[in-house]
Structures are given as structure tokens and as C-alpha cells.
Design a protein around this nucleic acid. Structure first.
Lengths: 341, 341
DNA sequence: GTGAAAGCGCTAACAT
DNA sequence: ATGTTAGCGCTTTCAC
């Protein structure tokens, strides 16, 4: 057989398949979508034709009819942290598994930009929205809510994110282990260096509670919400030159390079002068000297869970307020050592 | 005014706008798409109605009609290297600037997976395809070529990628600077550690040529194409325990952690025993001790260029075989020091 | 300049 | 069980 009338630049459509199999369009459609109201023999003919013509259904067209685009919108503030990447990876995996594609967008940071990004996703009529660490986006989500489009937050949700279902993990156990280890090594004063936004994380609560258990002092120190490494320097200097300076530091992954530079500049050595724990792991944290202990998150699993959640939601079953597919885990490395005398 | 007849779960459509402005659908369309054959007064009414109803055109529907989906497909082997991320970022930026969204997919590695990913993108009828470091995908691209869908490779293209237009940068100048610096510091023997695939990069050629200029010995050493850090150990051991061991090492970013571990395990220090240059930069390379010199690529610019190229191509003007928006640059850091005696 | 109508590719009544 | 028809939201002839 020969493809009936094929022009080079034209994509083969359901009509072509139907004609080639000598059935009506609707029969072809039914056969290909696997409905039962079609004779086995005809169905076979349709499938053969489709195969031969290399027919690929136009998802957009089907979406128009079904009011589903089979795309999931994902918004990241920037794919910068390893966790964000993992989440993206896992999300894609879960989405593809269910036939969805992922339309991803980076919102650089400003609210205005976020607005634009959401608008584009709305224009594309995504079937669901996955927001990584959203913050203050409640208002801009209204159009999606009006349409009943599922929206979930992943990893964390800042203030002003309304009551989006949150896909996250429980850092409690891992933080407990970390603090226990530090207590065991004689540490009596810990600190968490974080930007004001980050401080709202439940990590803060856990750190405080666990520290209290051992009678350990715990303090938070605000970091500028700045990308510049240097900006961390003064804070570290202040913290470490105080009379009662902490002997154990917790800090988010993205600030580690800056922190290392700052400590280095101050002549402070890890773990001799201060122990260090990073929230978030990466390959290179294992090859620094010393390797840096982490409290880590299985971002991929988070992403997968988020994907599954929205797909289920699309099908009708709304998720609970919090989904916790896995727990963070504690990775002990040489950056955690005995408290200095 | 009040939204005529608005049901909660329904999205406002062009029809709604037309009715609200009391014009025909086609006039509304013309007004909103900014065609001239429409009275100023009517146009104003239409715009007002659109504004009031918060009308957002359905891109998919428009796409169906115009045979353009306004999406660009991007395929990464995995968003793992910092450059890949930057490229993605830049691509998104350029795409959005021109009204396109980016449908991104990760192909884990196997050819089969790549096939599936491409198929999904085809089903979504992406208007163009951007492939990051593609290799051996020529055959699977046929459907896109048949349809005249623009496809470009970014950063590099492996064997079997046909004659895809390539968006890349010229590493020549930067490599020349690096080798010059090493020569100046007395190095007489350099090596490039890379997986067999990576060795096909034009970096190899440049390294060889530049080394030759100074009469410097240059050797390539194959790495297993493995994600496991440990697998690099034996190779490093072999290379560094040879009688004529190199005093300067070039290696791709992603292998740096493994290399550092291996050198560390072998009791070798940078730059005392060997100097190191990484292809590809990252924040943490500045905060290791010593900081690691790099030959770096402006991935973002690459991504932007790729985006611009496919958009232009969609509009009709095919790109040249190679687009080189910027050059790689040499970043001297303390990992490059005097050759050991 | 404006509206009516056709049609992009597909699915889902509705007829038979 | 199959074909005919309508219509998803939009643009664009084609008449007037």
C-alpha cells in the first residue's frame, strides 16, 4: 500500500487514516482511542493504517475538544538549587507517565514577572499548576481557581500562598538526628543563617525545638536576600565575633559557597572552629575539604508526588492539605566535629 | 456593566467578548489581533469588553487554526550541568520574549527514551525543537524534518546528529589563553580527561594545537561514561603514577568532584602537584580551596541565541550551519600554579 | 468596514 | 456497530 495522497509538508491526520482504512472518521477515532463499539476487524484495519501512515494524534486538537491540553505548568523561581532540579526531574517523570507534558517557566523573582509567567501558562490552558516554593501569589492564582485548575505548591509555600496543597517532606526527623549528633559532640550553641523568607520554614521550628531538648542555645541570623556572595560576609563576621559565638551553623545550600568564603576570610576552619550543616546536598559538597554534612531532601520524589497529585486532582480527587511522600534524611560528614573548647 | 452570563467554571471566550461589545465574533477577533479593517470606535468597545471580562485568548485554539502552537520543545539529556541550566534559562527568556512557551523534556540517556520524548513533543506539535548536546538522533528527527519543523543543536552535537544547525561558542581563544598561562608557568605536559564522546569536542583539537605551539606534550585519557565518582579513581591513579605524568589537567565540570576525591585519595595536592582547569564554571568552584580555574561558557547567551534562531527560522529565515553568539572565556584561579619540579 | 460561514483536528452525541 | 453532524475557540475567506 501507498500513502494515499501525501504532500511533503503536511502532517497525517485522522482523516487520512480513516480514508486509508476505508472507514469513517469517527470509527477511526473510536478504534484508536480503544472504545469497544467497533468491530475487531475494522479496528485492526484502522490500527494498521495508522501504523503505516505514522499517524500521531494532534494533542492540541484533541485538547481543544476535550478541554484538556495534557500539559502541566511548572513555575520555578529559578532552577538554581539542586532540589529544584530534582523536583523538576521527578515532576517530568510522573507527568510523562500519565501522558502529560510539562510547560516550565522561570519567574526571575519580581511579582510582576510571576504574573506574566502565570498568564502565559493560563493562555496555554494548562491542566494543572505546580509551583516551586511560591510566595505571595495568592491573588494571581484567582483565574486558575475560577476555572477549577488544580494548583499545588511544592517543597514549601511562603506567606500569601493561600491554602495551596503542599507537597513537602518532614524535615523533623533529620533535624533531630543532626542536633542530636551536635549535642553528642558537645555543642552548646547553634545558629541558623537564613534570609527572612527562609526563616518561616518549619525547619526553624524544628531546630528550635530540638535544640531546646538538649538545653542548647539556638539563634537565627538574618541574611540579605541577595545573590551576591559577598553580602554574607558581614553577617558571618558579626555572628562569629560575638562573645557567645555559635559552634554549629545551619545554612541553606545556596549560601554555602559564600559562607565558606566568609569563614575562610575570617581565618576560621571547619570543623575546628565551627561545625557546618547544609540544608540541601550536591555532589561537590562531598569533595570539599572537609566534606559538608547535609540535611537532604529527595527532590525527585517530591516532584513525582506533586505530579501524581495534580494528575489525580485533574481526574477528580483533590489532595489533602499536605502531602508528605518522604522524609528528609541526615548525612553525617566531616564538617561536623567536636565543639571547640 | 456586568459580565453577561458568567458561569463559575467557564472560561471567557472570544464569543463572550463579542457579545459583550455587541459586535460579531469576527470583528472582535480583528480588533484584538490589531487588524486595520475595523472602526476605531468598535475596536475600542471590543478592547474594553475584553478588559472587563478578563479575556485571555486560548493559545491552543488559535494554534489549531494557525497550525502553530507557540511552543518550543527543548530536550536535555538531564539538566545537570550548570551550562545546561543556563541554556535553559536563556532559551526560556528568548522564547517568552517572542510569545513562545517552552515544553521541556529530559531524556535520561537511552536512545529509546529519547525517541519517546521526541514523540511526545511531536504529538504536541511544537513549532521548533532545541536539542542540548544531541547525539545519534538523526533518524528520530525525520518526522520533524518532514514537517519542516526547525531543529537546532545547542552547545555541541555528537555523531549522528546530521547537519543540525549548531549554536555554540568558540572555545579556541579561551583555550589558547589557558595553555599560554600554563606554558608560562613552566608546564610541559598536559592531559585532557574525558569520556570517549566528549573527546570528539573541538576542545580536543584546540588543546592539541595550542599545546603544540609551545612544544608541550598533550595526551587524552578516556574516562568511563559513568555517573559514579569512584570510577574516575583508577584512571587518575594510572595517569598520575606514570613516569611522565602530566602537570596540568583539563576536565569537564561534571567530573571535577570525582577528580578532586581521586587526587585527594592519592595524596596529590592542587596546584602543588598538579594544576587543574575545569571546562565549565559553577559557584562552588570559587569556594573550594584552592578555587578552580575554568574555561567558561555563557550558557544563557547560548540559550538566547538558540531561541532567537528557531523563532527566526519559524518566520522563514533558516540559520547558518553554525551560530556563535559569544566566546568562551578563561578564568584564571589558584588551581593553576607553577609546574612542579 | 462588517457579519456569516467555513474549517483547523479531533471527539461525542445523535442518528441509523 | 457504523456514519453523519455538531462543535471545542479561534482566524479568515467570502459576501455584502
Amino acid at each position: 500500500m501507498v500513502a494515499d495522497e501525501w504532500k511533503p509538508g503536511r502532517v497525517v491526520t485522522l482523516k487520512d487514516v480513516a480514508r486509508h482504512a476505508d472507514v469513517s472518521i469517527s470509527t477511526a477515532s473510536r478504534a484508536l482511542t480503544g472504545q469497544r463499539n467497533v468491530q475487531t476487524e475494522l479496528a485492526a484495519r484502522v490500527w494498521a493504517a495508522a501504523e503505516e501512515l505514522d499517524y500521531r494524534p494532534n494533542v492540541a486538537a484533541r485538547g481543544l475538544r476535550l478541554a484538556r491540553t495534557m500539559t502541566i505548568g511548572a513555575v520555578f523561581n529559578r532552577l538554581e538549587s539542586p532540589v529544584a532540579l530534582e523536583v523538576f526531574d521527578g515532576l517530568g517523570e510522573a507527568a510523562h507517565e500519565h501522558g502529560y507534558s510539562v510547560l516550565v517557566a522561570n519567574a526571575g523573582g519580581s511579582a510582576g514577572e510571576y504574573q506574566v509567567v502565570l498568564q502565559r501558562l493560563f493562555d496555554q490552558r494548562v491542566d494543572a499548576l505546580v509551583l516551586y516554593r511560591p510566595s505571595g501569589v495568592e491573588a494571581q492564582l484567582q483565574p486558575f481557581h475560577d476555572l477549577g485548575v488544580p494548583v499545588v505548591a511544592v517543597f514549601a509555600r511562603g506567606p500569601g500562598s493561600g491554602d495551596l496543597p503542599l507537597v513537602t517532606n518532614g524535615p523533623g526527623a533529620a533535624i533531630a538526628q543532626a542536633v542530636a549528633r551536635l549535642a553528642e559532640l558537645g555543642h552548646r550553641s547553634l545558629a541558623y543563617l537564613a534570609t527572612p523568607v527562609e526563616m518561616r520554614d518549619n525547619r526553624t521550628t524544628h531546630l528550635r525545638e530540638e535544640s531546646a531538648k538538649y538545653g542548647i542555645e539556638f539563634a537565627m541570623h538574618p541574611l540579605l536576600d541577595d545573590r551576591d556572595h559577598a553580602s554574607i560576609g558581614p553577617v558571618v563576621h558579626d555572628v562569629m565575633s560575638a562573645r557567645h559565638r555559635p559552634t554549629g551553623l545551619f545554612i541553606r545550600y545556596r549560601h554555602v559557597p559564600g559562607l565558606l568564603q566568609a569563614l575562610n576570610a575570617g581565618g576560621l576552619e571547619i570543623p575546628r572552629d565551627v561545625s557546618l550543616v547544609s540544608f540541601g546536598d550536591a555532589e561537590w559538597l562531598q569533595s570539599t575539604r572537609p566534606p559538608i554534612a547535609t540535611i537532604n531532601v529527595d527532590g525527585q520524589e517530591l516532584g513525582r508526588a506533586a505530579g501524581r497529585a495534580v494528575v489525580e486532582w485533574i481526574k477528580g480527587t483533590a489532595p489533602p492539605a499536605v502531602i508528605q511522600p518522604s522524609s528528609a534524611y541526615w548525612v553525617d560528614r566531616a564538617s561536623v566535629g567536636p565543639a571547640p573548647a
